[in-house]
């Protein structure tokens, strides 16, 4: 069946751009992701297998070699790998009790970047995004308007907004309006 077509990938935010001089919005590149669930006893083995130390403190993350482990809940992490690795298989090698579900296509991400990226996101997000409360590396599941997102601050002026595919256009639109307002 080698003569068969190879299906091509189409991201829901492909080609979109928006925002303002103080907060630019760009779609993130495709990445592989798993929703990782595990008891405390498995954390060490999973950290080893995934080559990134799973954070155990609320609202924190860890990164190594383009791979990010985001604390979502006390037994839940969102693992994002920018090189597209097979994270389900890697987690499986830990031998430890866990659940890894591939969510590479469930989520997409918007990168919001600029001196007022926080203000733009606050158009729809009720969390305090000041650097003191939401420092670089902080992450949290929360809301933007009516849509659930995972916010991840990758730099003082940059957030990665992980969102389910079908909510992406809505979240992009809302933050883009916030970005325009933040520029006034």
């Amino acid at each position: 069946m080698s003569d068969l077509m190879q299906a091509t990938r189409r991201g829901v935010l492909d080609g979109m751009h928006g925002g303002s001089a103080v907060a630019r919005l760009t779609p993130a590149a495709p990445a592989s992701r798993i929703s990782l669930r595990a008891p405390a006893a498995s954390v060490e083995a999973l950290s080893g297998a995934l080559a990134v130390a799973l954070p155990v403190k609320p609202k924190t993350s860890a990164s190594a070699n383009g791979r990010h482990a985001l604390w979502i809940g006390p037994d839940e992490w969102l693992i994002i790998d920018e090189s597209g690795a097979d994270l389900v298989a890697e987690a499986g090698k830990s031998g430890a009790l866990h659940s890894a579900a591939d969510v590479s296509h469930r989520n997409t991400a918007v990168i919001v970047s600029g001196p007022k990226a926080d203000v733009a996101i606050n158009a729809g997000c009720p969390q305090d995004l000041s650097l003191a409360i939401f420092p670089v590396g902080a992450c949290s599941r929360t809301l933007v308007g009516k849509a659930e997102v995972v916010l991840y601050r990758t730099a003082a002026d940059t957030f990665r907004v992980e969102v389910w595919r079908s909510f992406a256009a809505y979240v992009f639109g809302l933050i883009a309006e916030g970005a325009e307002d933040a520029a006034l």
Binding site: P58, G73, P74, S140, T142
Partner: peptide, 8 residues
């Protein structure tokens, strides 16, 4: 339930 947070 912290449904749009940690889920707990």
């Amino acid at each position: 339930r912290h449904v749009h947070g940690c889920g707990k």
